[in-house]
Design a binder for these strands. Sequence first.
DNA 1: CCAGACGTTGTT
DNA 2: GTCTGG
DNA 3: CCAGACGTTGTT
DNA 4: GTCTGG
Length: 226
Amino acid sequence: MCGRFTVKGDPAKVRKNFRLLSIPNLMPRYNVAPTQDIAVVGLGKDGPNLIQMRWGLVPSWSKDPKAGAPLINARADTVAVKPAFREAFRKRRCLIVADGFYEWTGEKEQKQAWYITLASGEPFGFAALWERWRPPAGTQGEPILSAAIVTTDANDAIAHIHHRMPVILDPADHAAWLDPSATPDRLAGFLKPLPSVSVRAYRVGKTVNAVRNDGPECVAPLDAAA
DNA sequence: CCAGACGTTGTT
DNA sequence: GTCTGG
DNA sequence: CCAGACGTTGTT
DNA sequence: GTCTGG
């Protein structure tokens, strides 16, 4: 699964990897948590554009955005048919800007966090969906743009940590993923685990556990050797 | 036909 | 334990 | 995802 | 929005 991630930055690389028209103004984030604002790349009239959304998809028909667990992940194998996701999967695919994510092993006192990045260290896009929620007529509330990360089986490099992982797209596939006319078969082809050779994972301290911590210490290797 | 329900994942 | 907030 | 809160009444 | 139940 994927319940925390980073966008440490280098906005210039983000611009390059997502083919944005300008360098985005991104604050370095070391501990992005569900319900927080995230940077999402969608397909605008003039190409890819970056906007801010909330992590945790709220179905358009939801009566109350706070009702139910936040939909932070969507399984690749069912995203096309689940009521909460299928329409977004068909019409509102997007990329969530990141450069690493966390997974945990163990429980309670023995809980151990791991930090996973590309071997290249480059920023990347999670395959994601977005949705627009509007408050029902006559009720309080502001419209909410929200998104969920598609997950798939873990690759061999991180299977010892967790059996699921977020879908990370090859930049070469970004345009095709965002293409409104993409066929279901084509899309399914993108929703695969990243090759093991292209990821790195190492243990980190418990700083990341608390959402209030959002600095470089979150990604500091636990082992001196790492 | 209309009314009303419908969120998900990963864990054990 | 369960739910909420981040 | 994890951390932390989560009590009610009656009275002023 | 789409699907199910009546």
